[in-house]
């Protein structure tokens, strides 16, 4: 168990270092940073002097080490666009994105899981067929189209919900939250639905497929032969066995919700990191881009670690060494 965590942490560090390398390479190979600092008429000598002062003529490895050291402290330098520390920019935008992603993920799970279970248990009912057809539509509609349709119906025609922005927020220390005002909650609804829709349909289909698979196994058949009530068989025995793949996919999906909030945030003008990165890309704001890259990779690594630990919680076969227990495991 400890060895497993250590191994995972080592892998995580390796992943983070390679992502950091790509982020760093952005600086080195996408334009010359000196050009972004000095004016057009700066002489060659002064440029070289500046380059030396900034350590940009140091060996590549040394520069990279310095970058990693700063990044580990959350220091990604100044944004070219805003001329403010990147960490500040990110800290401002991070709560918006995380809250949106969290609500989207909870929504996807809260609807996807029960619907998936229902359609798995009642495969021939008309309601299952209906929900599966609906989920097929959900999975095939592109995000931007979903956004626009939702805005059209709920913001323009019905006028119930705002079509852009985050509403009013409350500051808790450096964290700004939209959860505490009616306004903020209303603003959350449409973007969260948009963002969660695709994941939801994915979870529905995954849970359904796993449920069907597990219901065919011998131990479910044997549970029926023991006369256990259906509730216990479905929710006690079958559901838990579907969890491992569901945890994997849901974990990865949470990562991609954060990473791919870009489109949703752009359409809804949501003041999160997605919007920030879109602006940074159009501005070639490399410090922001590289910080975003490293941060998203960090989220993925953390989520993966949590997913792996959850496996241990769910599956005793991983927890308990079979050979140590009784022998004869082969």
């Amino acid at each position: 168990m400890i060895a497993f965590i250590i191994r995972r942490l080592c892998q995580s560090v390796a992943v983070m270092l390679s992502v950091a390398f790509i982020a760093f390479a952005l600086f080195t190979y996408v334009g010359d940073p000196i050009n972004n600092i000095v004016g057009q008429d700066t002489g060659l000598r002064e440029r070289e002097q500046l380059r030396h002062q900034l350590g940009l003529d140091d060996p590549f490895i040394l520069q990279f080490a310095r970058f990693v050291g700063h990044a580990a402290e959350g220091d990604f330098g100044l944004s070219y666009q805003y001329a403010r520390p990147v960490s500040e920019l990110i800290a401002e935008r991070l709560p918006a994105t995380l809250e949106l992603s969290l609500v989207a993920a909870v929504l996807a799970l809260a609807i996807g899981l029960p619907v998936g279970i229902y359609t798995g248990l009642h495969r021939y009912s008309w309601l299952s067929q209906l929900m599966l057809t609906a989920s097929l539509v959900g999975i095939s509609l592109p995000t931007f189209l979903t956004c626009i349709l939702l805005i059209l119906v709920f913001a323009v025609i019905l006028g119930w919900l705002p079509s852009f922005g985050r509403g009013s927020t409350v500051a808790l220390g450096w964290w700004t939250t939209g959860f505490l005002t009616i306004d903020g909650l209303k603003a959350l609804i449409l973007p969260a639905i948009t963002l969660g829709l695709f994941q939801m349909t994915l979870i529905i289909r995954l849970v359904r497929a796993e449920m069907l698979e597990v219901l065919r196994t011998d131990y479910i058949k044997f549970a029926r032969a023991r006369g256990l009530p259906n509730r216990l068989i479905h929710f006690g025995h079958a559901l838990k066995n579907t969890l491992v793949p569901v945890i994997t996919i849901t974990g990865l999906q949470l990562g991609s919700i954060i990473a791919f909030a870009v489109v949703t945030e752009t359409v809804f003008q949501w003041p999160g990191m997605g919007l920030l990165i879109i602006q940074a890309i159009s501005f070639a704001d490399i410090p922001v881009m590289s910080a975003y890259l490293v941060l998203v990779a960090f989220f993925f690594v953390v989520i993966n670690l949590i997913v792996d630990l959850l496996y241990y919680a769910v599956d005793p076969r991983l927890r308990i060494d079979r050979a140590a227990a009784s022998g004869h495991g082969i």
Binding site: T217, D218, Y219, K221, F222, A223, R224, A225, R226, G227, L228, H237, K240, N241, V314, D315, P316, R317
Partner: peptide, 21 residues
């Protein structure tokens, strides 16, 4: 209610007859 109480069952493969979790 009858299954397990009046009629019990034993299946072929003990490896797969028990819930592993």
């Amino acid at each position: 209610r009858l299954r397990g109480k009046e009629i019990g069952a034993i299946f072929q493969d003990p490896l797969t007859s028990l819930n592993p979790l």
